[in-house]
């Protein structure tokens, strides 16, 4: 029967379409292209040591990109996430070196500060209904000022250093800042993988994940069927803040010092990685794995350009080009997905 045949063909198109509209698709293709490009020209790049080298920036960026991806799927932005990595690092090093805190205790204090900032961001956004872009731009500037002001007042310089001498440093570093055995791979990579797995599981397999997609896709509709929209969003801002604390602590433990300007400018890179990974700027769509792959692309380009002996300025050019390409690809894919109606 002709109608049955048509239905079967429709089913096939559906399957292909579902594969094509995976949000990660653009990022996967991009990662393959970028890897082939650098691996083809640099032997170091494709060696184990090389891979460990470019996975390192991918890991810290990736932890943030995954959290930002969740937040963006939930329909919000956080411009204060970058500078918050600096704030948590500064809290950690300052408390441990100037006030004699145990490193673990200082980290806990940093976590409390981060969660408070995330909670404040979320509360202001959900209460006032102001765009999170503006609200977190405000917190971004305030934190930037605090980081510099407090650091200068305490040390007379723009950095705090000397974490190595603090109590508990070695054990904390082993967990957050060190390498996995003698392999040359940073433990941060494990944290990043863990973040990606947990975020993906939450999105795809938990009730909270359903709520995240819903509040980003249409907040009013979500609220009307009983989704606790404000709570979901506040939790997302706090998740981002938690990630910022994790990354800030990892970096502080690794370098034992933190610049007061640390993290500034990174916020956009997180967003770019998430967008390359398939997140829509309008919310309601995206993937945590995609954001992770976006971060890998950055890590590869960041170090690959160095391996090739190019000027690091080219990285910025690459960044812009990737962003444009990814957004265009995402839009095409989404149009295609919506076009094949009926």
């Amino acid at each position: 029967m002709s109608s049955a045949a048509a239905d079967e063909r429709l089913a096939d198109v559906g399957r292909l379409r579902r594969l094509l509209i995976r949000p990660e698709l653009g990022a996967v293709v991009g990662a393959v292209v970028v890897f082939s490009f650098f691996a083809g020209q640099s032997e170091v790049f494709r060696s184990v040591a090389g891979i460990a080298n470019w996975l390192d920036p991918a890991a810290t960026l990736g932890i943030m990109a995954v959290a930002i991806a969740l937040l963006m799927i939930g329909g919000e932005f956080d411009l204060s996430a970058g500078v918050l990595t600096g704030t948590t690092g500064l809290v950690l090093v300052t408390l441990a070196t100037r006030f004699g805190f145990n490193v673990w205790l200082a980290m806990l204090a940093g976590l409390a500060v981060a969660l408070a900032v995330g909670f404040a961001n979320g509360l202001i956004v959900t209460r006032t209904r102001l765009p999170s872009f503006i609200v977190t731009l405000g917190t971004f500037l305030m934190l930037q000022g605090l980081n510099l002001g407090v650091t200068k007042a305490l040390t007379g310089t723009v950095q705090v250093a000397g974490l190595r001498g603090a109590e508990g440093y070695e054990s904390a570093r082993a967990v957050f800042g060190g390498t996995v055995g003698d392999s040359g791979f940073r433990v941060a990579i494990l944290w990043w993988v863990l973040a990606t797995v947990v975020a993906t599981w939450v999105l795809m397999r938990s009730r909270a994940g359903n709520w995240i997609f819903a509040v980003g896709g249409n907040e009013q509709a979500a609220r009307a069927v009983g989704v606790p929209a404000a709570r979901t969003k506040i939790a997302l801002f706090m998740t981002t803040a938690f990630a910022a604390w994790l990354v800030g602590s990892i970096l502080a433990l690794r370098y034992t010092s933190v610049q007061a300007s640390s993290g500034i400018g990174q916020e956009f890179i997180y967003i770019i990685a998430a967008v390359i990974g398939g997140c829509l700027l309008t919310g309601g769509y995206g993937s945590a794995i995609g954001a992770s792959i976006g971060a890998v692309i950055f890590g590869m380009a960041d170090k690959g350009i160095v391996f090739l002996g190019w000027d690091a300025d080219w990285f910025k050019f690459f960044l812009g080009a990737m962003l444009l390409l990814a957004t265009l690809a995402n839009r095409l894919v989404r149009r295609y997905a919506e076009e094949v109606k009926r």
Partner: peptide
Amino acid sequence: LAMIPLMSVWRNFFLGS
């Protein structure tokens, strides 16, 4: 505002419950 367009039918069906 009955449904969330970018979410699948089954996700919408159970949204909130």
